[in-house]
Design a protein around this nucleic acid. Structure first.
Length: 878
RNA sequence: GCCCCUGUGGCGGAAUUGGUAGACGCGCCAGACUCAAAAUCUGGUGGCCGCAAGGCCGUGCUGGUUCGAUUCCGGCCAGGGGCACCA
């Protein structure tokens, strides 16, 4: 079939894409109305930090979200698909220090650049709802909620140990301490006790853990990570009496937490955290102990040190009495491996069944007694030397517990000790402990949301009165000195006490930026409301987010904080639900080959040319022709220079090609390898679709639907509706790589159908081809929206395909009249058999046994059994 | 150390969840068009044997369950991720 030569023009993405973006903008078709009566669908991608330019990870993330948004819109939903900026944070301050630009100017310039980049991707976003967390119109509400949380008992001020950088004069997060040194200054980090603000997330430990089971549209992996992070363990709090002759001051007992009360008869020592009050009390009388505790404090910030740190202890001289035998005295050690903020900061050590305790006793010669014996183990040969036994078994060497299982022994110990009282209190009680700690939100930083608190020498710590909100960041600050610019601002921090009117001081700490991102999804539902953080009507309407999409790196912190924050908002009346994200999808990274020059420097993909001959690939620098080594495929990063700039791809191939390639091949949860060949393949397909649609547009079809369809026409219609069914199902399940494959298949089938036309097109086939063309364009529209508009127009439609409904499936076209079943003999495929769709088992069996291939495979033997699985397979067992 | 995931052609991956292994794409090979190139189109492409028809082998390794296993169960190997002195 020949085509008009004018239709042979290539599709020009660079010209077409801005044109269609403008058309969408002018018609405002992506603006969401809060009074839209259709069923709601809220799709959200994790909003970006305005670092400067978008990267390929953003392209992947936002493409996926956009496919879902466009699909749901076509399915008749009122879709909320907003975008904003996680705009507070350290990089802006670093830029201020390095380049003398104000953080605010730097941030807003980046936002402008990145917004233009996102717009060039053709995303169907409602930009009218755009928010930036550094805007006082946003953080004012965050301050209001902080005060509400404070009133509701969800915020607390307490002392805590922090990593302190003495050069930059700021607190560092654990991730910012590298090998014991500050990541910016390189100074040795100190441990300091500071008074900080905390959100009481640990009050919700149990709820946050239990509710994970209700999040059935979250990846199992993320739920598991959160479960481990919350870290629930059941155990027993036991009060040990101390030997009065050995105790300093008025201490008389020591409370410990254990999950293994069954091993109580294997105890060899008691351990105290260096921060334990009893350790401090003992140190007051013992300078050597005090020195040891000091030594412990100096170490222990750097991860590497903790990994390799030797178990060290110091005998306090105090002796504890065994709860079941007052005559049995246990030495009380201060030990460097015991944490103050878990349990009670004190343990009893059972070396035979705990590796750390074993390492400890082996160093100090305290010995061990096994009390759990593995099933089938000979008691006489059961000795623990260097490896503790933490498996199952029977109790031994344990008096009244002997012979019991671990579970029985735990229960027996708990029962005995919780019914025994001392000073009107039970000696032991059951307790559930969580690893999750309260969320410290104080940062000694400028570029963050100010904590709305005033410190008055007379009246104490006071909230800023609501009428004075927002507490705005002053803009006249300097970054020439280390430390927090707010702290040395001449006027900002000096205020009058709202209670007594005397001189008072503002809180100069700002909030952790994770606070900003813990509620932005709620603000999107009505970003205009000025007198409250949220409009309850809109929050109730739109939340939870139906589909949240982002990187796995946020599996714990951001997602856990948001879950807590939503609960806190519920308690203070700002929201009505517990779980903000009904569906979560974590996408994989974008990775790329690395290229290394002879001198060891990395080369950028854009500067490298790849040649292939046979199976060998060779990379050379375009500029000089120097051969570079092709290295392993790694996450795109500045350090390895294996990044590809989205702008370059948009420029040379267009947004649709980039979007299509991002969705092809790799399943969305896995890493995708960005390759030049892959992009070219996607670009080829864009042109192929354009030609194919051009050919269909040339077909003269009757207005009316024909009453009858011939074989060729029916085949086209079946291919179209099968593709429709498959693609719909796969988009709904976010299996974009399969959508892509099905669209390829469909385009291949259509291409063959048109190529097979020899003379004139019959009216029924012409009609079927036009129908198939319309379906094809609407199917790929969510992935390649600009090309789809261009094709839709070429097919003669006047409306935008972006506001067209999804095609109607005709299910009867999915049903075949005859089916071809594979035929196995003894489990090996030998033939196919084609039978009517509703053929009975006996008919199929007869047809199968008549096949030559089956007779041959049976070698004259008669079959023992014929298994016929309807619609699936036939297996002949000889 | 504890917990979890993954392993299929040269490559990315598919397989209706126990029923034809390798869809679709990339790459490669051959051909058509062209003075040539680009672009495009056609055919081939897991391995081995065979002119062919066809046969044998094949989803990390190794056992098992089953008429039938990439899929389920046991053991091992390899790679990746999370937590990490949490008592």
């Amino acid at each position: 079939m020949t085509t008009d030569s004018t239709k042979n023009e290539r599709y020009n993405a660079r010209e077409a894409e801005p044109r269609w973006q403008k058309a969408w903008d002018e018609r405002g078709i992506f603006a969401t109305k809060n009074d839209d009566p259709r069923p709601k669908y809220y799709v959200l991608e994790m909003f970006p930090y305005p670092s400067g330019r978008i990267h390929m990870g953003h392209v992947r993330n936002y493409t996926m979200g956009d496919v879902v948004a466009r699909y749901k819109r076509a399915m008749g939903h009122a879709v909320l698909h907003p975008m904003g900026w996680d705009a507070f944070g350290m990089p802006a301050e670093n830029a201020a220090m390095d380049r003398k630009v104000h953080p605010k100017a730097w941030t807003y310039e980046n936002i402008a650049t990145m917004k233009a980049q996102l717009k060039s991707m053709g995303l169907s976003l409602d930009w009218a709802r755009e928010i930036a967390t550094c805007d006082p119109a946003y953080y004012k509400h965050q301050q209001k909620m902080f005060l509400d949380f404070l009133n509701a008992g969800l915020v607390e001020r307490k002392q805590s140990k922090v990593n302190w950088d003495p050069v930059d004069q700021t607190v560092l997060a654990n991730e910012q301490v590298i090998d014991g040194r500050g990541w910016r200054s390189g100074a040795v980090v100190e441990q300091r006790e500071l008074t900080q603000w905390f959100f009481r997330i640990s009050d919700y430990s149990e709820d946050l853990l239990n509710a994970l089971d209700t999040l059935d549209r979250w990846p199992e992996k993320v739920r598991l990570m959160q479960k481990n992070w919350i870290g629930r363990s059941e155990g027993l709090l036991i009060r040990f009496m101390l030997d009065p002759q050995t105790v300093p001051d008025k201490e008389s007992e020591l409370e410990i937490f254990t999950t293994r009360p069954d091993t109580l008869f294997g105890a060899k020592f008691m351990g105290l955290s260096p921060d334990h009050p009893l350790a401090a009390a003992a140190a007051r009388k013992n300078p050597k102990l005090a020195a040891f505790i000091e030594e412990c404090h100096r170490k222990g910030t750097a991860q590497a040190e903790i990994d390799t740190a030797e178990k060290m202890g110091f005998d306090t001289g105090i002796r504890a009495m065994h709860p079941f035998d007052p005559g049995w005295k246990l030495p009380v050690y201060v030990a460097n491996f015991i944490l103050m903020d878990y349990g009670t900061g004190a343990i009893f050590g059972c070396p035979a069944h705990d590796q750390r305790d074993l390492d400890f006793v082996n160093k100090y010669g305290l010995g061990n007694t096994p009390v759990v014996c593995p099933e089938g183990q000979d008691l006489k040969t059961f000795v623990i030397t260097n490896t503790a036994y933490d498996g199952d078994g029977r109790m031994i060497n344990s008096r009244f517990l002997d012979g019991m299982s671990i579970e029985q022994a735990k229960e027996e110990v708990a029962k005995r000790l919780e019914t025994e009282t001392r000073g009107n209190r039970p000696v032991a009680q059951r307790q559930i402990n969580y690893r999750l700690r309260d969320w410290g939100i104080s940062r000694q930083r400028y570029w963050g949301c100010p904590i709305p608190i005033i410190h008055c020498a007379k009246c104490g710590v006071l909230p800023v009165p609501e009428k004075d909100l927002p507490v705005k960041l002053p803009e006249d600050v300097t970054f020439d000195k280390p430390g927090n610019p707010l702290d040395r601002h001449p006027t900002w921090k000096n205020v009058k006490c709202p209670q007594c009117g005397g001189d008072a001081r503002r809180e100069t700490d700002t909030m952790d930026t994770f606070v900003d991102s813990s509620w932005y999804f709620a603000r999107f539902t009505d970003p205009w409301i000025a007198n409250a953080p949220t409009d309850r009507k809109q929050v109730d309407k739109w939340l939870p987010v139906d589909q949240y999409i982002g990187g796995i790196e946020h599996a714990i912190l951001h997602l856990l904080y948001s879950r807590f924050f939503t609960r806190a908002m519920k308690k203070t009346g700002h929201a009505g639900l517990d779980e903000p994200f009904a569906g979560l999808f974590t996408q994989g990274m974008v990775v790329h080959e690395t290229y290394r020059k002879k001198n060891g420097e990395w080369a950028m993909p854009a500067d490298v040319k790849i040649e292939t001959s046979g199976e060998a690939r060779r990379a050379t620098l375009i500029a000089t022709g120097e051969e570079v080594e092709i290295g392993p495929i790694e996450k795109m990063s500045k350090s390895k220079r294996n990044t590809v700039d989205p702008d370059d791809i948009m420029e040379s191939y267009g947004a649709d090609t980039a979007r299509w390639f991002m969705l092809s091949d790799s399943p969305p949860e896995r890493d995708v390898i960005w390759s030049e060949e892959g992009v070219q393949g996607a670009g080829r397909f864009v042109q192929r679709l354009w030609r194919l649609v051009g050919e269909i547009a040339d077909v003269k079809a009757p207005e009316a639907r024909p009453a009858q369809f011939g074989d060729a026409a029916l085949a086209v219609r079946k291919a179209a509706h099968r593709a429709l069914a498959n693609v719909s199902d796969d988009i709904a399940r976010l299996r974009f790589n399969r959508c892509v494959a099905h669209i390829y298949e469909f385009a291949n089938a259509l291409g063959e159908a048109i190529g097979g036309i020899e003379t004139a097109v019959t009216p029924d086939l012409a009609w079927a081809l036009r129908e198939a063309g319309d379906i094809l364009v609407r199917l790929f529209h969510p992935m390649m929206p600009h090309l789809a508009e261009e094709c839709w127009a070429a097919l003669g439609h006047k409306m935008l395909v972006a506001s067209e409904p999804w095609p109607q499936l005709e299910p009867e076209l999915l049903v075949e009249n005859t089916i071809t079943l594979p035929v196995q003999v003894n489990g090996k495929k030998r033939a196919d058999v084609t039978v009517p769709r509703d053929a009975g088992k006996t008919d199929i069996e007869a047809a199968v046994l008549a096949l030559d291939a089956v007779k041959r495979a049976l070698e004259g033997k008669s079959p023992k059994k014929v298994i016929v699985v309807p619609q699936r397979i036939v297996n002949v067992v000889a």
